[in-house]
Amino acid sequence: MLRRLRPSRFGGRIALTAVGICLGTVAIVYIYVVAIGGAASGLGQVKTQIVVGGLIAAGIALAIGWYYATVAASNVRRLQQAARKVADGNFETTIPVASVGQLAPVARTFNEMQRRLAELDIARKQFIANASHELRTPIFSLGGFVELLEEEDPSPAEREEFVRTMRQQIERLTKLATDLLDLSQLDAGAMVMSAGSVDLGDLAREAAREFGPRAEAHGSRLQLRTAERPVLALADRERVRQIIRILLDNALTHTPEGTEIAVTANSSNRRRAELIVSDQGPGIPQRVQGRIFERFYTGDSSGGSGLGLAIATELAQRMDGRITISSSRRFTAFTLELPQARPTAAPAPARPLVKAPQ
């Protein structure tokens, strides 16, 4: 229904006063409207109404501002309390995002930080427990043999066996200490690498000569397969040599005697240089393959600290490469992929190691 609007008896003249309030992302504007008459006698009354309206609007604004300030202060205190708990080592208490209002993005970031700190704390505890176990085993073994040598009079053959076993335990301790040092340098970003052109075929031949006697003692046949042309990768020569040693040691340790092992160096079609260590052992179960590169993880009871493959894959990542596994029944292959280098590439100067993204 339409209705006609009639002008007021004041001739349609009005006076306006407005108060604006900004509360975070919300803007509130209070408008007070007063009709103004034509007579001068009503001017004082109009002024009074404007002042009263302004005071009322200011009072309302102060009340709302005080309320939001109280809520914000409460949310900040909640964040402070949660931060103190995290500082004390308690990573279980999270902040409900819906309860902190405009601080919700901060709460989400805080909860994510808390989750990551909890994961790091669990990894640290597991690392200490595993390292302690790996150190304790050879130390106890050495202590037992020392007591036997002190308290008994073994025969020359028994003494020789004791000395051989003690030497093995010392080598195990030395390798574990070296692995732990490498891990600490990797985690701290303190390992320095020198990028240059590396012939993977040349390193494969060196490794075959080094591990030949051990493979022969293991009853295994170590084959070398390299291309006629150099297989050049852009990487650190010493770290690539370390990775090859880890892969060959892993193949000889975790396969039965007489297993055929091969080292292959070639170039792929994706401008990547590859070095493959394969064996014809029993294969690795699928459930083990998903965790085989984790620190201190061992898929069988063959021994070892479970650090070698973890170190190898982190070294590869820091050279812009990677290590992959392919395994089936009667076959396992670990492939080291590295960026391919040009034949004329000159070695780059040494640079500090930067941690690769996860």
Rank of each mutant, 00 (worst) to 15 (best):
E112N: 14
A273Y: 00
S41Q: 08
P213Y: 07
Q340V: 04
L103P: 01
I323S: 02
G24Y: 02
L307N: 03
I244C: 08
R164Y: 08
G201S: 14
S267V: 15
P156M: 01
E147S: 14
E158C: 05
Y67N: 12
R78A: 14
R229V: 14
A208H: 14
P343S: 15
K355R: 13
L232Y: 00
A204C: 12
A118L: 10
P256S: 07
E160W: 01
S184L: 14
F10D: 08
M1A: 14
V192D: 09
D279Q: 02
L149G: 08
P282A: 12
V106S: 10
V86R: 09
A207D: 05
T226V: 15
Q45K: 10
I95Q: 10
P349N: 10
E150Y: 12
F331A: 15
R115C: 07
R225G: 06
Q358Y: 09
A188N: 06
R172D: 13
I95Y: 02
A107Q: 09
L173R: 11
G24I: 01
Y297D: 11
G290Q: 12
E92Y: 02
V100H: 01
R4C: 09
V277A: 03
T94G: 09
E112F: 10
R322K: 14
A82T: 06
A251V: 05
H218E: 11
A104M: 05
A207Q: 11
S41A: 10
N266D: 10
E337W: 04
P282V: 08
L180H: 03
V100C: 05
P343H: 05
T109N: 12
M191S: 05
G59R: 12
D88F: 01
I311M: 05
I244R: 07
D199K: 04
Y297F: 15
P105Q: 04
D202F: 11
I56Q: 10
G321K: 01
G308S: 13
L186W: 08
A15L: 08
D202Y: 08
R318F: 04
E92H: 03
P154D: 13
L23P: 06
P7F: 11
F293Y: 13
I50G: 07
F140D: 14
R136H: 09
R6L: 15
E112S: 12
P339Y: 06
